[in-house]
Design a protein around this nucleic acid. Structure first.
Lengths: 196, 196
DNA sequence: GTCTATAATTCGATAGAC
DNA sequence: GTCTATCGAATTATAGAC
């Protein structure tokens, strides 16, 4: 069959994203990717140079979260959870990063930079202390990535089965507390204060 | 060098755990594991039969969490977080499971069964509804695994740097709310109720 | 642009000497 | 129990015909 260069590249990229997301870096062979795309394996090398560069192209991402500061202060947590879930279901990029980041240091480094640059500014809007903002962003990341892990990667049945609305209702307050919560509120609810 | 059979097996197993934990299944080659153990690669096959069975032996685990029902009801969350962190730092088994579970369905299935059988009973102690217990256990799993992911696997700087005490203080209340929280308490704190 | 053929590695696994 | 030698399969990557 005869295709345009751009069309082939696009087909390969789509197949690569699926394979990398499902199998990780090693088991997603260029042969399998090429077969999925209905294209000869040598074309993959021709267009992308190497498997490594194909991978880099397959997981380019711009999180592009909506600015949480534009939503009412009390709903920052819910808004963030909602935005992340949408982003996650939009394409396979984040799934690739999470799956391969667990075994490849360079991908883990990329995850770090993405989440730090995206979430730290949000947390920084609610505190003057830069180090505390990093902590809060880290905690929020842990819960958000944990949900993604259990829902989309490990597929824990109850987490996978929950509706998005239900998930936001449960997890939103957690993120809210991590990002903008204060010790006084916790104390009023009988929650152990986290400050010495 | 001349060793006993048991000593060699033990050396291989220790090296395998390290490699699997650091590199995942594919990149942890039996050659590399054997080299780490200072043993010939063929001995690995002799003792374990195949790489797959070596892996199975390397990630056998018994979570053996302390029964959270023996602690005061208000500290169930903190106790669980504390226990998980200790367990995680104890050996590399859970790290192997999490790292490889992201790309190997059979390992993911094992993660599911471990966390379901360990956490669902805890959640079930606080509700009569079996389906709700599964949900709560799933939510708790998401936060606990998310912390493990960010602290030990992806190594997000702020999460990695936090003291265990600080981490328990932040995350404990989250687990507490997931496992034994009620909507009324949330409402009193100005948190959006999660029930329709 | 597409494909065949193949080079160059690397891996898991086996056979057999000592 | 240990090691050398090697097989057979799979992988990335390249060269070159059409």
């Amino acid at each position: 069959m005869r295709r345009s260069s751009a069309a082939s590249k696009s087909l390969i990229l789509a197949a690569a994203r699926e394979r990398f997301a499902a199998d990780g870096y090693e088991r997603a062979t260029v042969r399998a990717i090429a077969a999925d795309a209905g294209i000869d394996p040598s074309m993959v090398m021709r267009y992308f140079g190497s498997k490594e560069r194909l991978f880099a192209a397959a997981c380019e991402v711009d999180l592009a979260l909506p600015d949480p500061l534009t939503v009412p202060r009390g709903e920052v947590g819910s808004a963030l959870v909602e935005a992340f879930l949408s982003r996650w279901e939009g394409d396979e990029t984040l799934q690739i990063l999470l799956r391969t980041g667990c075994t490849h240091a360079s991908v883990a480094e990329r995850m770090r930079s993405i989440f730090v640059t995206q979430l730290v500014p949000v947390a920084a809007a609610f505190t003057g202390d830069a180090s505390e903002a990093e902590k809060r962003a880290g905690l929020a990341s842990s819960q958000i990535l944990g949900v993604a892990l259990c829902r989309f990667v490990l597929e824990f049945p109850p987490v996978k089965a929950m509706s998005r609305q239900e998930l936001v209702a449960w997890v939103g307050p957690t993120i809210q507390r991590y990002l903008v919560g204060d010790a006084a509120l916790d104390a009023r609810c009988g929650v152990r204060s986290w400050e010495a």
